[in-house]
Amino acid sequence: MDSILLRNNVKIIGEGNRPILFAPGFGCDQNMWRFVAPEFESDYQVILFDYVGSGKSDYDAYSSSKYSELGGYAQDILDICLALDLKEVTFIGHSVGSMIGILASIQKPNLFKELILIGPSPCYLNDPPQYLGGFEKEELDELINMMDLNYIGWANYLSKVIMKNPERPELSGELEQSFCSTDPHVAREFAIATFFSDYRNCLPEVSVPSLILQCSDDTIAPLEVGKYMFQHLRNSEFYQMKATGHCPHMSHPEETVQLIRKYLTVNQD
C-alpha cells in the first residue's frame, strides 16, 4: 500500500468521509488543484496524486511499456483506490486526466460514484468528416516540437544536475518549485500517449454518471469535442462554462467549484 502511495505521491486532506479524487491534466502535477481542492476539505476526503513521471512521483517506477498508453495511468488510479480502500469515489479529472478516469471506470465501474470531466477529449486529431478533434497531425507535431524547444521536463533534470553543484543553490530552488517539472523522456511519451490517442470507441462502455465541464474558447478541447462526449456518454450532463481557455480550475476556480458542488448535491441521492 505504502509503495503505491509513494509511487504516485498521494496526499490525503480533509475531514469528510466521502472520497473525492482529483486527477491533474497533461504536463502538470497536483498543485494545479490548489484553488479548487481546499474548497472540499471540510466535507470530503480529498485525495491528490501525481502521475508516475510527473511532480514528486517515483520516477524509477516509470516504464515506457506500461505508460505508452493511457491504460497504464488508469491502472494506477485503480491501484490508489484499492490501496486506500476507497468506495463510491467522486472522480474529478482535468483534460487527459478525464480520459484516464473514464478508462479506470470502465474497468471497475462499481468503484466510482460519478465522474466530473473538465475539458475532456477522446481524440485530439481531426477525423473528417464525422469528427473534429481540433488538430491536424502537423499541428500536434509542432506542439511536441515546441515542448522540445521549451525544454519541457528539463527543469527537473537540471535540478538533479544542479543539486550536485551546491554553489548555485538559487537556481536549484527555483527549478524545484516548477510545478510542470517532469522528466524530458517521460514528458515526450506522455504527450504522444495523450495527443495521438483515440479513445472514442470506449465512450459507450462507460456506465458511471458524468458531468462534462466545457470551457468557452478552448483550443485544446473545443466545444464540438465536449458535445461529442456528451452524446456518447450515457448518463452524462453537459455544462458550458463562462470560463475561457483550458484550465478553468485555475482561471475560474469559483465557477468551477460552484458547478462541481451543484452537481454533487443534485447527484447526492
Binding site: 521549451n150 483550443t219 485555475m250
Partner: peptide, 14 residues
C-alpha cells in the same frame, strides 16, 4: 495553433 495550445497547457497555469 500549437502556440495557442502551449499557452493554455503551460503559460497560463505557470
Amino acid at each position: 495553433k500549437s502556440s495557442q495550445s502551449f499557452y493554455q497547457l503551460y503559460f497560463f497555469p505557470m
